[in-house]
Simulated assay, not measured.
Amino acid sequence: MDETSAGPGAVRLVHDDDRDRYEALDGDEVVAVLAHGDEDLPAPDGESLGLRVRDLRSTVVAPDRSGIGIGSAIVRFALEDIRAQGMRVRPTCWFVRGWIERHPEYADLLESPFPQGEGSEGRA
């Protein structure tokens, strides 16, 4: 389990690989979760490219912790972990997708670039 401490509310960020998720912890309390799934990145001919893609599927922050940056902290932590592993990212989660659009320094991790006009649907 990889971990680091992060600013918002002094939460501890961890990657729980056994449960396919990143977590933000306040003591023993889970205050945010970013669920993911991994798969091989296929080549156009159907063969494996030898690369893995991490599908960031859902970000959930406890309602009483919303709006103080924990969601952003967990997304940044996940993307740094993905970068360190040499993986690509598929931002299925609308929050992650919007976050990457606002932080283009992480766009190089995308499985495929965002088409023009996409990426901001459902943004709150």
Rank of each mutant, 00 (worst) to 15 (best):
R102Q: 13
V11F: 01
E111C: 09
A62M: 06
V75F: 00
R65W: 15
D64T: 06
W94F: 14
P8S: 11
R123F: 14
R52V: 15
G71I: 00
S48D: 13
G98E: 07
E29G: 12
D18M: 09
T92V: 10
S5N: 13
L41G: 03
G67R: 14
V53G: 06
V75T: 10
E80Y: 02
L79F: 00
V31N: 01
L51P: 04
T59Y: 08
D45I: 05
A24W: 03
M87Y: 06
A73Y: 00
E111G: 04
G9V: 01
P44H: 09
L110P: 05
V11E: 02
R19T: 09
R83L: 04
E47G: 13
R83P: 02
P115K: 06
S120E: 14
W94A: 15
D64S: 07
V33K: 05
E80G: 07
F95R: 00
E121L: 11
G37P: 00
D28H: 12
S48Q: 12
V30W: 03
E118M: 10
G122C: 04
F95C: 01
R97M: 06
Y22V: 05
F114T: 00
A124Q: 08
P8C: 08
Q116I: 10
G122R: 11
Q116R: 12
G50W: 05
H103G: 09
E47M: 09
E29I: 09
A62P: 09
V53I: 11
V14G: 06
L51I: 14
R52D: 11
G7L: 11
E47I: 02
D28Q: 13
E111S: 12
L79G: 02
S5R: 13
C93E: 07
M1F: 11
E105L: 00
D16E: 12
W94S: 15
E29D: 15
A78N: 03
R102N: 12
S120F: 13
I82Y: 02
F114S: 00
G50N: 04
R123I: 13
V75H: 01
D45Y: 04
E101N: 12
R54P: 02
I74P: 02
L51F: 13
I82M: 07
A124W: 07
D26R: 13
L79I: 01
G67Y: 04
R12D: 03
P104E: 10
C93T: 06
T4N: 07
M87G: 00
D108K: 10
Y106F: 14
P115L: 05
G46S: 07
D40W: 12
R83F: 04
G71F: 00
D108V: 09
L25S: 05
L56W: 06
V96F: 04
R97K: 12
E101A: 13
R76C: 03
E80H: 09
V31R: 02
R90D: 14
V14I: 14
W94G: 15
L79M: 04
L51C: 10
R83C: 03
V89N: 08
D55H: 15
D28T: 14
L109S: 01
P104R: 05
R54L: 08
V53T: 12
A6H: 08
E118F: 11
H15Y: 06
M1L: 13
